[in-house]
Amino acid sequence: MSAKIITIAIEKGGSGKTVTASNLAYLMGDEGKKVLCVDTDPQGNLTFALSGGNSITSGIYHGKALYDLFDGFRYTHTRDYIVETEYENVDMIPASSQTPRINKRLQDLYEDAQQFKDGDPKKLSSMGDFLLYFLNQVRDDYDYIIIDTQPTRDSQILSNAIAAADYVLIPMQCDAFSEDSAFRTYSICSKLSKDPASRLKGIGVVLTMVDKGAATRETREECKSELGSALFEAEIPMALAVKSSVRKCVPVCYSARTQPVGRSYAALYEELKERLDKLEEN
């Protein structure tokens, strides 16, 4: 077993990255799959969701979060920074208040990596390879690894998250601003996937917060025209149940399993599995 690594990314905030990450993780775990979530967002929302409401400012993960794993690159082991979550079969590497410091540390860490001999896995070829190096230590322990990212286009942590991915999932709020952002993220990932040195095998866009208005229909048609088969058929509707689930720190596909939004996340997961299986076949 070697985990499929799924990075959830878009440069615009408020598009549903963390809600998508947490609900997919729940559905995977509920199916009996072993899942590792990695919270690379300095806001720590995924950590909050998966821990039952522990804020990154609480200090509960002080010394044992993502920053600490990176900071001790020479001697840290990934398993020592993995914690259990409130979800069955789902573990995580949490964020902490120190997460923003990773970007500043990477240059020094990369210089450290160059001190190792050729052939040593610690001798990394770029600053974008650190997260994959850490995840490779535990990939055989999981079926899926989900990486939640921050809303930006210019971050070394984000570059690490995309470089580590087998698949990038782009959640796009169904409006013009998010559409522009999603297209940029898709273009960046598409170019990367064509690089022979890249591990990235697939990219998909899922529409979130979808309503029945005319503007939504126009946006959907534009996405179909621009993205083709990269656009998921599954869509996540606008629903008050999402806000309620976030407040309660439970996945909406659990708290509102029979409602349209809960069924939509289940449909998204099924479609994602099909896409990942096709990539394996190719």
Results as ranks from 00 to 15, higher is better:
residue 4 K to Y: 11
residue 5 I to T: 10
residue 6 I to G: 03
residue 8 I to Y: 04
residue 13 G to D: 04
residue 13 G to W: 07
residue 14 G to I: 00
residue 16 G to S: 07
residue 17 K to Q: 07
residue 19 V to Y: 02
residue 22 S to W: 00
residue 23 N to D: 01
residue 25 A to P: 11
residue 30 D to T: 09
residue 31 E to Y: 04
residue 32 G to Q: 08
residue 32 G to L: 07
residue 33 K to C: 09
residue 36 L to P: 03
residue 36 L to Q: 01
residue 36 L to N: 04
residue 42 P to M: 07
residue 44 G to A: 10
residue 45 N to T: 05
residue 45 N to Y: 00
residue 47 T to N: 03
residue 47 T to P: 00
residue 48 F to D: 02
residue 52 G to I: 00
residue 53 G to A: 11
residue 54 N to M: 12
residue 58 S to A: 13
residue 59 G to F: 05
residue 62 H to G: 12
residue 64 K to T: 15
residue 64 K to C: 12
residue 64 K to S: 11
residue 65 A to C: 13
residue 65 A to E: 12
residue 68 D to Y: 03
residue 69 L to W: 02
residue 69 L to E: 05
residue 73 F to D: 05
residue 80 D to F: 10
residue 82 I to N: 00
residue 83 V to C: 12
residue 83 V to N: 09
residue 84 E to L: 12
residue 84 E to M: 15
residue 85 T to F: 09
residue 86 E to T: 15
residue 97 S to F: 15
residue 97 S to A: 15
residue 98 Q to D: 13
residue 100 P to I: 08
residue 100 P to S: 00
residue 104 K to E: 11
residue 105 R to T: 08
residue 106 L to G: 01
residue 107 Q to L: 15
residue 109 L to D: 09
residue 111 E to M: 11
residue 113 A to K: 03
residue 113 A to G: 06
residue 113 A to P: 02
residue 113 A to C: 08
residue 114 Q to L: 10
residue 115 Q to I: 09
residue 116 F to A: 08
residue 120 D to F: 12
residue 121 P to K: 00
residue 123 K to N: 02
residue 123 K to A: 03
residue 130 F to W: 13
residue 131 L to T: 08
residue 134 F to S: 06
residue 136 N to D: 14
residue 137 Q to W: 10
residue 141 D to C: 07
residue 143 D to M: 03
residue 145 I to P: 02
residue 146 I to Y: 02
residue 147 I to Q: 05
residue 148 D to E: 05
residue 149 T to C: 09
residue 153 R to D: 12
residue 157 I to S: 01
residue 159 S to W: 04
residue 160 N to Y: 12
residue 161 A to L: 06
residue 161 A to I: 07
residue 161 A to R: 02
residue 162 I to D: 10
residue 164 A to L: 05
residue 167 Y to H: 15
residue 170 I to P: 11
residue 173 Q to H: 12
residue 180 D to H: 13
residue 181 S to K: 05
residue 183 F to W: 07
residue 184 R to S: 07
residue 184 R to C: 05
residue 185 T to I: 09
residue 189 C to Q: 08
residue 191 K to R: 15
residue 191 K to I: 13
residue 192 L to R: 15
residue 200 L to I: 01
residue 200 L to K: 00
residue 201 K to R: 15
residue 204 G to K: 08
residue 204 G to S: 14
residue 205 V to R: 03
residue 205 V to N: 06
residue 211 D to R: 09
residue 212 K to T: 14
residue 216 T to K: 11
residue 221 E to K: 14
residue 221 E to Q: 15
residue 225 S to E: 11
residue 225 S to A: 14
residue 226 E to K: 13
residue 226 E to G: 13
residue 231 L to G: 00
residue 233 E to R: 10
residue 241 A to Y: 04
residue 242 V to S: 06
residue 242 V to I: 14
residue 244 S to N: 13
residue 247 R to L: 12
residue 250 V to I: 15
residue 251 P to C: 05
residue 251 P to E: 06
residue 253 C to V: 05
residue 254 Y to S: 12
residue 257 R to P: 01
residue 261 V to C: 00
residue 266 A to T: 14
residue 269 Y to P: 02
residue 270 E to M: 02
residue 271 E to T: 13
residue 275 R to I: 11
residue 276 L to C: 03
residue 278 K to D: 04
residue 280 E to Y: 00
residue 282 N to V: 08
residue 282 N to C: 04
